[in-house]
Amino acid sequence: MYLEVKAMKKSYGENESYIEVLKGITTGLEHGKMCVIQGASGSGKSTFLNCIGGLDSLDSGSIKVDGKEIARLKQEELSDYRRDNLGFIFQFYNLVPNLTVKENIQVCEYLSEHPLNMDELLETLGLIEHQNKFPSQLSGGQQQRCAIARALIKNPKLLLCDEPTGALDSKTSKDILILLEEINCKYGTTMLIVTHNNSIKNMVHKVIIIKDGQISREYENETRIPAAELEDL
């Protein structure tokens, strides 16, 4: 098992403001699989993702990624873990406005000892003709492609996506999902995708549904359909 989560608990605040967000989550994911995490707002799905990404610490429990326990790493060790293993894609692109597309991607390229080929990645993501443009000169979909390229250039083993299509229209959402599917096939990247969109679960290998801080249901998707055939995005 590439990702192993056991009895994950996470809370915030104290006294009257105390809230238990994750209440003992146990799950796992095989290497190279795509997994959707669904749940209502406030269910704990983004906190779940942030804990795996080392952005939030656990109260208790265990997170193993590729056999390495990360739940009790020190800050410097967490930085190394994120640099060496993870790519992040968010709903908001977080591009550096005064850097070009290529320069935004190079920011992360320099962090990796074994980055992907820049030209090949630009070609795969349809960014060759846009590589010298600034974010303000791009559409929302093009900015998200740039954000994806920036996450992928490090050649991460695990890609964490928090509402990657949340700010996009239906057609652009489908284009981005097709790209994620191609990346999964081409590079074998393991993906965790947090989304409110009910259609995206149809294209992935595994679905986890979180309710009130616990897994209410999880299952392997035996009837996957290609991203290009998704409806109601």
Rank of each mutant, 00 (worst) to 15 (best):
Lys6Cys: 01
His114Trp: 01
Asn85Arg: 13
Gly42His: 13
Asn155Met: 06
Glu182Pro: 02
Ser46Thr: 15
Pro226Asp: 13
Gln214Asn: 09
Ala151Pro: 03
Lys74Trp: 00
Met1Val: 09
Arg82Gly: 05
Leu55Lys: 01
Lys64Thr: 13
Leu116Gln: 14
Cys146Tyr: 09
Pro164Gln: 11
Leu230Pro: 02
Ile210Gln: 04
Gly166Leu: 02
Met34Asp: 00
Asn132Phe: 08
Val5Gly: 05
Gly24Lys: 11
Leu86Val: 12
Lys9Met: 04
Thr26Lys: 01
Ser199Tyr: 14
Leu3Arg: 11
Glu120His: 07
Ser62Met: 10
Glu69Ile: 07
Gly24Asn: 09
Cys108Gln: 13
Glu14Asn: 13
Glu4Ser: 14
Leu73Asp: 04
Thr223Met: 11
Asn155Ser: 14
His205Ser: 14
Leu116Met: 13
Glu109Lys: 15
Val65Leu: 10
Leu95Ser: 12
Thr195Asn: 09
Asn221Glu: 12
Gly126Leu: 06
Asn197Gly: 09
Ser216His: 13
Gly44Trp: 14
Phe48Ile: 12
His31Arg: 15
Ser136Cys: 00
Glu123Met: 06
Arg224Asp: 00
Ile37His: 11
Pro156Phe: 08
Leu138Arg: 12
Ser173Gln: 14
Thr172Asn: 05
Pro97Gln: 10
Ile37Cys: 11
Ala71Lys: 06
Ala149Pro: 03
Val101Gln: 10
Thr26Glu: 04
Lys201Ile: 04
Val101Cys: 05
Lys211His: 08
Gln137Phe: 03
Leu180Ser: 12
Gly188Gln: 12
Lys174Cys: 06
Leu121Phe: 02
Glu220Arg: 04
Ser57Glu: 01
Pro135Lys: 11
Met191His: 04
Phe92Ile: 10
Gly44Ile: 10
Ile178Gly: 02
Leu152Ala: 01
Asn50Met: 07
Leu111Arg: 05
Ile210Phe: 02
Tyr81His: 09
Ser57Phe: 02
Ile148Glu: 03
Ser60Thr: 11
Glu14Ser: 14
Gly44Met: 13
Glu129Asp: 15
Asn132Gly: 05
Asp56Arg: 02
Ala40Arg: 13
Asp56Gln: 11
Cys185Ala: 15
Arg72Cys: 06
Glu14Met: 05
Asn98Val: 13
Lys102Ala: 07
Val194Cys: 07
Ile19Trp: 02
Thr27Phe: 04
Thr223Tyr: 13
Asn104Glu: 11
Lys206Val: 00
Val65Pro: 03
Gly141Glu: 07
Ser11Gly: 03
Cys51Leu: 05
Glu14Cys: 01
Ala151His: 03
Gly53Tyr: 12
Leu179Gln: 15
